[in-house]
């Protein structure tokens, strides 16, 4: 077991663990966040175990994870959004991503044999838009007084920290560099995973009753 695999398993587990500990402030997104951490941890675990105990590649696990991850994140922002217009936009964007996922995976890319790229980038761009939209709305609410203690703020922060630097890197590796060394990509993704999970852990542990 390499350090990278340990990081991949440990941080989602820590996030999940911290979310399951007693919390002093419950919010309407708690269930979605716990579900997301379960998905992260199970994906990483299966991604590690499948190649170990079978002949199969683990690409399909991560391909499914991509869709699941974005859908849960969108549902979080759907819950957080107070605007009916934005709720509709989020629903349409989710529906669009699901269609794109099927088009990208089953028409263009072999679902079981290759990691998808376009679905991830499309999903990440939508996620960044939703994060920024939410944070801009957040700036104009009373919650700003205690934003350090806001779970949704730290969650959005964690998502932005992961997705924003990851998009140019993944595009760069896809188009500009002849990717022979996946190690670099993996190493960098681990740095981003750590930073985002630190935010997720903070979101559950550093809160207080308002």
């Amino acid at each position: 077991m390499t350090v990278q695999i340990i990081i991949s398993l440990l941080f989602p587990f820590l996030s999940l663990f911290s979310s399951l500990l007693p919390i002093n402030k419950t919010t309407k997104i708690d269930f979605h966040l716990r579900l997301l951490f379960v998905l992260m941890f199970v994906t990483e675990l299966l991604g590690f175990l499948i190649p170990l105990y079978s002949e199969k590649q683990n690409y399909f696990i991560y391909n499914m994870y991509t869709l699941g991850f974005f859908m849960i994140c969108y549902s979080v922002f759907y819950q957080l959004s107070k605007s009916t217009r934005w709720k509709k936009i989020i629903l349409w964007l989710s529906f669009g991503l699901i269609l794109f996922f099927f088009y990208d995976n089953f028409y263009k890319v072999l679902f079981f044999d290759k990691l998808q790229f376009k679905t991830f980038v499309a999903g990440a761009v939508i996620l960044i838009i939703l994060c920024i939209q939410y944070l801009v709305k957040f700036l104009h609410t009373d919650e700003i007084y205690d934003f350090y203690y806001s779970r949704s703020f730290w969650f959005s922060c964690g998502l932005l920290l992961f997705t924003v630097p990851f998009i140019p890197i993944i595009i760069g590796f896809q188009y500009m560099v002849d990717v022979k060394n996946l190690e670099i990509l993996q190493f960098l993704s681990k740095v981003l995973i750590i930073s985002s999970h630190i935010c997720f852990i903070i979101s559950f542990r550093w809160t207080r009753l308002l």
Partner: peptide, 27 residues
Amino acid sequence: VISDLIVVFVFILITLVIIIFTLFYTF
């Protein structure tokens, strides 16, 4: 590969710092 790794790592680090700083400064 190592030099590429360092360049991209620094790039990511700068991006992270910019995001964190912008978010916290604005908020």
